[in-house]
Design a protein around this nucleic acid. Structure first.
Lengths: 218, 218
DNA sequence: TTTAATTTTTAGACAAGTCTAAAAATAGGA
DNA sequence: TCCTATTTTTAGACTTGTCTAAAAATTAAA
């Protein structure tokens, strides 16, 4: 098995690979992990020695197949626990990340498979992110950013890109939640803001907001 | 907050204090923690520096008030998670210890208070051990060892002293479970074995077994 | 009470994961 | 291309928790 620190690095590399297709740079990883580049180099060497990543000096890292599987397993655990915390223990969606960061490192295959079953095999976590199944498959969906939705069109809120506490609280305060219908009433070109209607309310939101909300159109 | 290792030492000292009233010896702690006496000495010094234990060289350790509170909090978490695993995730009572050993170190007060509420504020874990409440109070009970039960008397099985996998599986195999009524039919003086009746079955058990089963009489 | 056995502590070392400071490699601009 | 700025790596050090081997203190026995 792998250490807590190793698992966290794998997870970070997994997430960064979306933006760094040619290999995740040491500095990017250092920023994500909130550590120093030198520490990252050390850890990368260790991960490379364990065949979890492919690494050539100065060229950045990519996950190996084993590394990817391991990262996905950690993400699966994280998201299942988040779902548990919200659905069973009545946590708010902005409170669960930190706790799930701890729970995701608990080692027991049976624990996770039983938890998954207990929760009814959920497909998405409280932020709308897909929960990989036991085989590591993510549910795919054709979601788009609210910012990309055209005027007068309607879509259902299905996820958030930014899941920071501040953003989630902002959404709560404005009664924006997963599953709700949003219609774009107007779009301003000069600042990218838009006027939307949600549950019979009209609301003006900035481009920052619409760029961090995922929508599914029907 | 305290490290995983510190919490495990506190828990071990708490459990050993029952047998070592005048102070837990370094060697006893080393055996309990499956480590070397020298490592124990090092850790004790650290715990002492943090005011978690009272320590005088060569005299063994005792928990301070803070140390005791911390130990009880860890035990509370361990037992609540064990209850969760058995009651909600359908684990057997011999499977939960290892996982709870990991879960007991998750840091979040709210997690535990919500878990406690979700579980319905259980008073005992799957092995019959009391779960301390949020204030650290243990439910007290007048349980005795089955070995102490007199011939022809009846009691209810309420806990196990030894909660090793082997013992628990033995009990399962013989249909002995918490909550069941046990009547002592005969006691043999030469080997301490007894003949008991449980759910219309007669069963001969050794003294080792009767010395590790707790019974509540009515 | 003096010696021998046992327990406990100290001293020094090691592995994991981190850091700072400095060196090496790469990338970008003239 | 060559020089500078940036990125990455190396070297050496620190912390936590562990270990072995040896020294010190305590306990037990004669």
């Amino acid at each position: 098995m792998f250490s807590l620190s190793e698992e966290n690095y794998l997870k970070a590399i997994f997430h960064l690979e979306r933006s760094y297709k040619t290999g995740v740079s040491t500095n990017a990883l250092a920023e994500e992990m909130e550590t120093k580049a030198s520490s990252v180099t050390d850890m990368i060497k260790k991960l490379s020695g364990k065949k979890l990543v492919n690494y050539r000096k100065y060229q950045g890292v990519k996950l190996s197949e084993l590394g990817r599987e391991t990262a996905i397993e950690v993400i699966r655990k994280h998201r299942l626990w988040e779902y548990f915390l919200v659905e069973k223990l009545d946590f708010q969606w902005d409170e669960v990340h930190e706790i799930a960061e701890q729970l995701e490192h608990i080692k027991s295959e049976k624990l996770i498979s039983q938890l998954d079953r207990f929760l009814g095999f959920p497909k998405r976590d409280p932020h709308g992110d897909p929960i990989p199944d036991a085989q590591g498959n993510f549910a795919v969906s054709n979601k788009i950013l609210l910012a990309e939705l055209e005027k007068s069109k309607t879509g259902m809120c299905v996820g958030v890109k930014d899941s920071s506490v501040d953003f989630l609280r902002f959404l709560d305060k404005n009664n924006i939640a997963l599953g709700k219908e949003i219609r774009v009433l107007e779009k301003e070109t000069f600042d990218g803001s838009m006027l939307i209607s949600i549950e019979n309310n009209e609301l003006r939101i900035s481009q920052v907001v619409s760029n961090n909300l995922y929508i599914k159109t029907h």
